[in-house]
């Protein structure tokens, strides 16, 4: 594949008066695992559905594997694999029947052999001849992944592939995603799980309210916030405004954002900043509930970009 695996310019989608995707520019390189992170309703699924040719674009352009989703949908469909948020499986078919049908629809040579190969790859050989309705959530998700891979797609879209799965199943899916990517498939992954984005993605973009609010590598986005995060919980009787004001005056504090129960201060050296922060609050007469130091997380990136915590939204 020459050129980006996914390229969008001012991509938009309206539903009546609501602009679900409000002009986003994305560029995903071939071979990348690209994370698309955001809370429920941020525009992740709408973007993926446009890129998969399931939803017409309202404005802008989108190229997938070099083909325009609006004018060359058929060419795009040959190049992509899709596993949407809810595993789209037919419960009456067996895993083997489903994969053989899928391989046939994509005109894969020897569909039976390909189905057997994929069943073995995702660890479902033993359950291959059971109806899908008897599969567990994790098994369904792995089968869904397998159906998206029958034709060895150049770009694989995974829309919240681990939502609703237990930890063990989630880790199995992660391993599968890494394996698929190692074979050269570009992966466009939406998620609302920060750990998932951290674990899997080479690069990610954060979307909120239909707009991109941050983009970069997970480490790059975190380090851009500063070396440490000092989180201060408000004690009884204090106001967040007074807390924010007092913390902002401390030397070494890069910037301060509100959290649910207080503020988070982004500092160059957490250990050195804590005594100064406590003294400043004491002098300002602001009662402190808790103080903690941590390295910036992707949630801090989200918080700094949007003023809200993604983990609270996803919980």
């Amino acid at each position: 594949m020459s050129g980006p695996a996914v390229l969008t310019r001012q991509l938009r989608r309206r539903f009546g008066e609501t602009e679900a995707v409000a002009g986003i520019d994305l560029e995903v390189a071939p071979g990348e695992v690209f994370g698309f992170l955001g809370p429920n309703g941020a525009g992740k699924t709408t973007t993926v559905r446009m890129l998969c040719t399931l939803l017409p674009v309202s404005g802008g352009t989108a190229l997938v594997a070099g083909h325009d989703v609006a004018t060359e949908p058929s060419a795009v469909r040959h190049k992509i694999g899709v596993a949407l948020q809810e595993a789209g499986l037919d419960p009456l078919q067996t895993g083997r029947e489903l994969l053989e049908l899928q391989a046939g629809l994509y005109r894969v040579p020897a569909p039976r052999d390909r189905a057997a190969e994929l069943l073995s790859l995702v660890g479902l050989s033993e359950a291959a001849d059971r109806r899908v309705k008897g599969y567990s959530g994790g098994m369904k998700r792995r089968l869904d992944l397998a159906t998206a891979l029958v034709h060895a797609p150049e770009v694989l879209f995974l829309d919240e592939p681990t939502t609703g799965l237990d930890v063990t199943s989630r880790i199995t899916v992660w391993d599968e995603v890494r394996r698929i990517n190692a074979e050269g498939t570009t992966i466009f992954l939406t998620t609302q799980y920060l750990e998932e984005a951290d674990q899997l993605c080479d690069r990610l973009a954060i979307i909120d309210g239909g707009r991109l609010v941050a983009e970069g590598t997970p480490d790059g986005l975190k380090s851009a916030l500063g070396a440490d995060v000092v989180t201060i919980g408000l004690g009884r009787g204090g106001t967040k405004e007074a807390l924010r004001q007092a913390v902002s005056t401390v030397a070494g504090v890069d910037h301060v954002v509100d959290t649910e129960g207080g503020v988070a201060a982004y500092v160059t050296n957490g250990a050195a900043a804590v005594p100064l922060v406590v003294r400043a609050l004491d002098e300002a007469g602001v009662e402190v509930g808790t103080v903690s130091i941590s390295r910036p997380s992707l949630d801090d990136v989200f918080l700094a970009s949007t003023g809200r915590s993604l983990e609270e939204g996803a919980a």
């Binding site: 058929s74 809810e86 499986l89 159906t147």
Partner: peptide, 16 residues
Amino acid sequence: TDIDLGYFDKLLVAPI
């Protein structure tokens, strides 16, 4: 039922 279960989307995105 296919639409409800999401299988219809899988068919729509196939090159058929």
